[in-house]
């Protein structure tokens, strides 16, 4: 089986910026692993995840996802996109639509173009969406409108939409940054558990070392667009995480930058 993610010497700068957002990154993620990207805000975690989702252009180096190499000049083939699921930091849900509609939106890439346009899911699409809702513990919310939900419930909808996509690689950008510690642990249990049950690879970013430790088998420390360490969770030292955060305080060219 090909690796879930294979990155060789990847560098990227945002358009109009001289400073690299990612610098000489190399990473190999075998299928089925759950991996945390740990680092302070602006370290490049979101950029790296967006790049793996095929949303960034103009990078250097070689990157392949699920055995298919990404092209730095054009978006990935649409047929391949459902294989990589993305859980957005701000949920990115259609607020006025129902929970079920939003989760079915995750099936759009797997439907025929006509069905996708008409919004008429097959019974298999519907079953997959309902199963994802059940897995996320929100089956009873199916007919509720998203704008009536709490933050934790929205995050569950966002994860259910991602699972409905039947992805083989799940990328989650700060999936718990807006939740309290108890909710955060619940959501990460759900996310990593669902990935494991499906044999999917899960990669999530976080700036909280304790959560990364609890829910990832492997932790990659990122700071200033570079990989600072890449270790199995059991080998992660307190010192390494402390350095990760201390270094960034004097790291030049690190700033918050939105990636869309």
């Amino acid at each position: 089986m090909s690796p879930a993610v294979q990155i060789d010497d990847l560098s990227f700068a945002h358009p109009g910026s001289d400073l690299p957002a990612l610098e000489r990154i190399s990473l190999l993620v075998p299928p089925g692993e759950s991996i945390a990207l740990l680092g302070p805000s602006g370290a490049g975690k979101t950029t790296l995840l967006a790049l793996l989702d095929g949303r960034l252009r103009g990078w250097q180096g070689r990157t392949s996802v699920l055995g298919a190499s990404l092209d730095p000049d054009r978006p990935p083939l649409r047929a391949r996109r459902p294989d990589t699921g993305f859980v957005f930091q701000e949920f990115a849900l259609v607020e006025r639509s129902t929970v079920l509609r939003n989760v079915l939106n995750g099936r759009l890439g797997r439907m025929s173009p006509l069905r996708a346009l008409m919004g008429s899911p097959t019974s298999h699409d519907l079953e997959t969406a309902l199963a994802a809702l059940a897995d996320c513990g929100i089956a009873d919310l199916a007919e509720r409108r998203v704008d009536s939900l709490s933050g934790g419930q929205r995050q569950r909808v966002a994860i259910a939409r991602c699972l409905a996509q039947e992805p083989r690689l799940i990328l989650a950008d700060e999936p718990v940054s807006s939740l309290d510690p108890a909710r955060a642990a619940e959501i990460l249990t759900l996310l990593t558990g669902a990935a494991r049950a499906r044999g999917a690879t899960a990669m999530f970013s976080s700036h909280q070392p304790d959560l990364a430790r609890r829910f990832a088998q492997r932790i990659v420390g990122i700071s200033g667009g570079r990989i600072v360490f890449d270790v199995p969770t059991s080998d992660l030292s307190e010192e390494a995480t402390a350095n990760l955060y201390r270094d960034t305080e004097r790291m030049p060219g690190v700033g918050l930058r939105a990636v869309s």
């Binding site: 957005f88 259609v94 939106n105 346009l117």
Partner: peptide
């Protein structure tokens, strides 16, 4: 954001118009 999310899920431009922009 939802438009980008649907694109990431593999939805085509018309499906995005129908399911993310129009609602």
């Amino acid at each position: 954001a939802p438009i980008a999310a649907l694109e990431s899920a593999g939805a085509g431009p018309l499906a995005r118009l129908r399911h993310a922009i129009w609602p």
